[in-house]
C-alpha cells in the first residue's frame, strides 16, 4: 500500500507543475458539468466497479482536473477503462456527471491525438465502431470486429494465444444460429448528411 502510494507521488512529480485552473471552467462552459463542486467525498470511487484496473481513481481524475493537470488526465488509463455504467454520475452528491467528464477527456484525447490504435485497444474499437456507423448508418458487427483486429494489431496476440480460433468458432456458431448477417443492412438516409457535415 505504501509502495503504491510512493509510486503515485512519483508519477505526479514527473509532470510539470504548471497549474491551469481553466480546465475545470472549460468543462463547465462546454458541458455545464460542475466539476469545481467536488468536495472529494470519493463516493464515485467507492461505487466504481472498475477501480481495479485504473491508474487514477475517478475522484483523482476530478482532482487532476481541478488542479489543471490536463496532460496527466488525458493520458490516464482510467478514462478508457471507465465503462460508462453511470454509477458515479448517479450517486454524486454535487451533481457532477463524472462519467460525462470521462467522455469529455476521451473526446479531447481523441481530438488532440494523444491516443493511438496500437497502444489503446479500447480506443481502436471505438474508432472502428464510429467509422462504420458514419459510413453505413448502422453498425455491422462482423465488419467492426474484423477491422478492430486489423487496426489495433490485436490479431497477432490472438493468433499466438490461440484465441483467434476461438473467435472464429464462435462466429461460425452465431452464423449457424442466424445470429450473424454476412452483409450489412441498407439504410436510406434520404440524402441526409448525418456525420459528414460535422466532419
Amino acid at each position: 500500500m505504501m509502495a503504491e502510494y510512493v509510486q503515485r507521488q512519483e508519477v505526479i512529480q514527473d509532470v510539470p507543475r504548471e497549474i491551469n485552473f481553466s480546465l475545470a471552467e472549460e468543462i463547465f462552459r462546454e458541458t455545464g458539468n460542475p466539476v469545481l463542486s467536488c468536495f472529494q467525498c470519493r463516493k464515485c470511487t467507492n461505487g466504481c466497479p472498475l477501480t481495479f484496473a485504473m491508474d487514477y481513481y475517478p475522484d483523482q481524475i476530478i482532482r487532476l482536473i481541478i488542479l489543471g493537470q490536463e496532460e496527466e488526465a488525458l493520458r490516464s488509463r482510467t478514462i478508457w477503462v471507465c465503462s460508462s455504467c453511470e454509477t458515479c454520475t448517479t450517486r454524486c452528491p454535487n451533481g457532477i456527471d463524472i462519467a460525462g467528464v470521462m467522455d469529455y477527456l476521451k473526446q479531447k484525447a481523441h481530438k488532440q491525438a494523444v491516443v493511438s490504435h496500437k497502444d489503446n485497444w479500447s480506443y481502436a474499437f471505438h474508432r472502428v465502431f464510429f467509422e462504420n456507423m458514419l459510413k453505413n448508418g448502422r453498425v455491422h458487427e462482423p465488419k467492426i470486429l474484423a477491422d478492430y483486429l486489423l487496426r489495433s494489431g490485436a490479431w497477432k496476440q490472438k493468433l499466438e494465444s490461440g484465441s483467434l480460433w476461438r473467435d472464429v468458432k464462435l462466429g461460425l456458431f452465431l452464423l449457424r444460429n442466424r445470429r450473424m448477417r454476412l452483409f450489412p443492412s441498407r439504410v436510406n438516409i434520404n440524402g441526409h448528411t448525418v456525420g459528414t457535415e460535422a466532419h
Partner: peptide, 9 residues
Amino acid sequence: ATAAHSLDE
C-alpha cells in the same frame, strides 16, 4: 452507442 459519446459529443 459508447463509441460516439466517447469520441464526439
